[in-house]
């Protein structure tokens, strides 16, 4: 089985937010919750860069390591899924995650933040069979239909790549060779403990 990953080519991303909008629409993600977002640095200055960020589906995921109720499981494809059945909304995963991926529906001074929500790599959830119940809890299960994540499919510049980690690394390498520059596969060292050798 392939190890699937995300790769955002920051030299291509134009901060159009098509990926964010596609994600929200596909999974009916409520206002204020962002499974994916675009972060822009040096806004308005030479060297401005944007990176589209969501859960990276880390190798040895830090969120899973800290979860007190063992919500997380990694699929054979390397997708980190999280069970809303088990989640107690403690928020530990938010502190552990290097990418700020976990989102919570409630803000309270004390007690639960509600069930954590994050990018599922468009693979639904770990508890249910694809269908209405799964959709309501986790959003669409495109992987079950043989489709890749909608964010990368809809990316207007193909900056955001999703799929077999080796294939997307190869696509990125070819691009960098062809155009002669590349600022690297952002987040790969942190998420996957490897980088795309150029």
């Amino acid at each position: 089985m392939a190890r699937v990953k995300f790769l955002c080519d920051a030299d291509r991303c134009i901060e159009c937010n098509a990926c964010v909008t596609a994600c929200k629409n596909e999974h009916e993600v409520p206002w204020g919750i962002n499974r994916r977002r675009v972060v822009t640095i040096n806004d308005g200055k030479p060297g401005e860069r944007s990176v589209s960020m969501a859960c990276m589906h880390c190798t040895d995921a830090p969120c899973a390591a800290v979860c007190p109720v063992n919500c997380f499981q990694t699929t054979a494809d390397g997708i980190v899924l999280h069970s809303k059945e088990l989640c107690i909304g403690c928020g530990y995963c938010f502190y552990a995650c290097p990418f700020g991926a976990p989102q919570y529906p409630k803000v309270t001074n004390f007690g639960s933040r509600g069930k954590m929500d994050k990018c599922t790599y468009c693979a639904g959830g770990p508890d249910d069979k694809p269908g209405k119940a799964e959709y309501e809890r986790y959003g669409a299960n495109r992987l079950a239909e043989g489709k890749l994540p909608i964010c990368a499919e809809m990316c207007s510049t193909k900056a955001l790549l999703a799929g077999d980690g080796e294939i997307i690394a190869q696509i990125y390498k070819e691009r960098v060779l062809k155009r002669g520059y590349g600022s690297g596969a952002w987040g790969w060292q942190t998420a996957y403990r490897e980088t795309v050798a150029l």
Partner: peptide, 9 residues
Amino acid sequence: RSNRWLAEL
């Protein structure tokens, strides 16, 4: 601006 996905952005 009436589209909730866009309005949020």
